[in-house]
């Protein structure tokens, strides 16, 4: 069963900005999924549409099989969301905030109080339960939003940049907490612009850039792609097929052109010596642009280096 299925999702804001240009996405039940992309890529827009805070222009979404157009209430009941922007009532206490949130999801008051104790404790906020939200530090507010999102024990938890602006120590303890939650069976989708965060936590990843999914794959395979460079080689004598080069993937493009993938642990020398041994002469070579790497360069440029 898919926790989230997004089909051909398009969003055009009233000011004409096309934030999503036809998104397709699958997140399996139980997954820990990263949605990675530079600022302005469309991450928050996508999450806004999943959580009914933004109207879509076209396309369809299903949450655990419930279509958002036809079974909105059932779909909403499955989702818990921690938004990017603070949206706490600054004049309510931590306990009131989480207990009320449970109430909006139809959870009886007694059970809500039990869960409030459980989740405020887990997020180290229990001793702050009588404090107003406005008196909390930034990290505490963010943890309060996580506790609030968990009160109805959603099957799918969506976090929009939960660790942005949170210091390293708290970020790590948040990671541990989320990992535990995922091991307990909650599907988690996390947006971030820190590759390290996605790498540490997530099994699957989609990279979103300028409103399109640039790549969606298993984390390990994506890292491999990211750390692999492609070179285009021109050879003097025409070739009928790709030569075998032990340990490397060589693709035949045309009789005078080959393409080879080199990971960061391998060397070009090795490739050349093997080609020379097979009597193949390379005339020239150029680097093929790595689209992923290009996106990651922009991630780093805008957000500074991750912790």
């Amino acid at each position: 069963m898919q926790a989230l299925e997004v089909r051909n999702l398009v969003k055009q804001y009233r000011n004409g900005v096309q934030a999503l240009k036809g998104i397709d996405l699958n997140v399996a039940q139980g997954d820990f999924f990263a949605l990675l992309g530079p600022n302005g890529a469309g991450k928050s827009t996508l999450i806004g549409i999943c959580t009914s805070l933004v109207n879509k222009t076209s396309g369809s979404l299903r949450v655990f099989g419930h279509d958002l157009d036809t079974e909105l209430e059932a779909a909403k009941a499955c989702i818990g969301v921690v938004p990017q922007e603070l949206n706490l009532n600054q004049f309510e206490t931590c306990e009131t905030i989480v207990v009320n949130q449970a109430g909006f999801y139809g959870i009886p008051r007694r059970l809500a109080h039990e869960r409030a104790e459980k989740y405020l404790n887990q997020l180290s906020l229990w001793d702050k339960r009588h404090k107003m939200a406005r008196t909390l530090s930034g990290g505490m507010k963010r943890r309060l939003m996580i506790a609030r999102a968990l009160m109805h024990e959603p099957r799918l938890l969506i976090l929009d940049e939960p660790t942005a602006g949170v210091d390293i120590e708290i970020r790590r303890s948040m990671w541990d907490f989320l990992r535990g939650l995922n091991e307990g069976g909650t599907t988690i989708i996390l947006t971030t612009h820190y590759l390290e965060e996605a790498e540490t936590l997530c099994r699957n990843i989609a990279i979103i850039d300028r409103g399109r999914i640039a790549e969606a794959d298993r984390m390990d395979r994506l890292l491999l792609k990211l750390h692999t460079e492609s070179f285009v080689l021109s050879v003097r004598a025409p070739l009928a097929a790709a030569p075998t080069v032990a340990g490397y993937e060589v693709r035949w493009i045309d009789p005078h052109t080959l393409e080879v993938e080199i990971s960061k642990t391998q060397t070009l020398n090795d490739v050349f010596s093997q080609l020379t041994a097979s009597g193949i002469e390379v005339v020239s070579m150029r680097n093929k642009v790595n689209r992923l790497e290009e996106i990651f360069m922009r991630l780093v440029d805008k957000s500074g280096s991750p912790a």
Binding site: T51, S52, L53, L72, E73, A74, K76, A77, I79, V81, P83, E85, L86, N87, L88, N89, Q90, I97, N100, Q101, F104, Y105, G106, R148
Partner: peptide
């Protein structure tokens, strides 16, 4: 006020019709 401070979202994301 709920809209302005954004905490109306607590209700908007919930299944309340």
């Amino acid at each position: 006020g709920a809209k302005f401070q954004r905490f109306l979202e607590e209700i908007s994301v919930s299944p309340l019709p």
